[in-house]
Design a protein around this nucleic acid. Sequence first.
DNA 1: CGGACAATTGATCTACCTCAAAATTGGTGG
DNA 2: CCACCAATTTTGAGGTAGATCAATTGTCCG
Lengths: 240, 240
Amino acid sequence: MIRSLERIGPLSDAERCVLDAAVARTRQLCAGQDIVREGDRPPECGLILDGFAGRYKLLPKGRRQILSFHIAGDICDLQSFLLKEMDHSICAVTACTLGVIPHQALRAITECHPHLTRLLWRSTLIDAAVLREWMAGIGRRSALARVAHLLCEVLVRLEAVGLAQDGVCELPLTQTDIGDALGLTNVHVNRVLQQLRGQEIITSRQTILVVNDWERLRQAAEFVPNYLHLRGGKDGEPAE
Amino acid sequence: MIRSLERIGPLSDAERCVLDAAVARTRQLCAGQDIVREGDRPPECGLILDGFAGRYKLLPKGRRQILSFHIAGDICDLQSFLLKEMDHSICAVTACTLGVIPHQALRAITECHPHLTRLLWRSTLIDAAVLREWMAGIGRRSALARVAHLLCEVLVRLEAVGLAQDGVCELPLTQTDIGDALGLTNVHVNRVLQQLRGQEIITSRQTILVVNDWERLRQAAEFVPNYLHLRGGKDGEPAE
DNA sequence: CGGACAATTGATCTACCTCAAAATTGGTGG
DNA sequence: CCACCAATTTTGAGGTAGATCAATTGTCCG
């Protein structure tokens, strides 16, 4: 929860309290339920305490583009604090628990806690950095590299919050979800995953992902984790 | 220059002064020159006073993905203030004049001017919103729609800062640039542009873009400008 | 056990890519 | 003002990664 902001930068005790206090209540969502929708003007933000969420845009003809995934510790819609009207939707991929932070509380933080404000700002900049990396992938990488890259990223991010170890983690995404995130069809995602399994790079069964050969996966993905701006961690160099 | 932050939100006189004072000096760049490179840790940010800049990532095998374009009034690398190490590069597409803002000045602003800080933060969130729209396009739209969408966006943004009117503006991009921005090849961009010209939707000659039929261009692009979070303007509804 | 959803397979198609050459354009120096 | 160079734009032919469509199979659950 607050631990994840500390990945981004050190917090003082006082700041920790302020953040704690900002969470007004919690909210439970079922898998598949929308957290906010395009066009909404929510009065609060949601800190993910547990679960897996995804931002997406819907286009004409039922096409969907998933824009990012969010895990425990992320404030999934911090932008709604400053931009008011949502230009995309966010939904709970798995059942989620959110810490609800009223915009008012955020405004108070920005008035009195410059350091904390910078950390929050920073977390939105990291979101944007991830977005850019995805964009480079969708625009210029092969389907195989894109899928491999997504797996690398999910694993590294889950490891960073202690939700993965030894190359094993939960990956509660359908092949259609993965396709919508990478600009591919579910059919093609299926074929690419079979390729990765065939080469014994990964062993994915339903919601469990096992990476058997990190090095080859990393190479197939052209994965360089600098864009995550993590401090330390798998193949990561210190940020800041 | 400062006018563009006012598009985002109202400024007090005092704040205007603070911003003015933050610009330490100016910097001239030739077309094609890099402003910052991936891996750099610049001590300052650049406010574009004049010209056209682009962010991009380089991938193995000479592939390039352009991530966004920036015009007069944009602070093109504000993220370097909080993220330190650049995870992508920015280059001047045309000759550019930059207002140089030392990170130190930004830090001072964040310490003493919460409202101004929120505006700056907000501008980075709008950058991210544009990024998301591009991503949806690259992932899920046809080549024709992508090109049309880019043209719509450039025109609307230039109009918003008074650099375009009546559907006419400068578009100092090569077809290779456009391709690198949209995940296409220059060859295919060429063919798509011919299509748009053939249908008399646009008349582009070298660096001048003329939109003859805005409505059909908008439809071909599936262009909905909510993601730009402009207040008013062409087809735009008030933001905030 | 049955229903719904997800994964898989196969066959076919096409939007966009690749490669390569020719035509334009703009700029430069003589 | 013209000749020339480099960078773009344009054209053509052929190839392919990934899409589409339509079953079939497998899995999870109530």
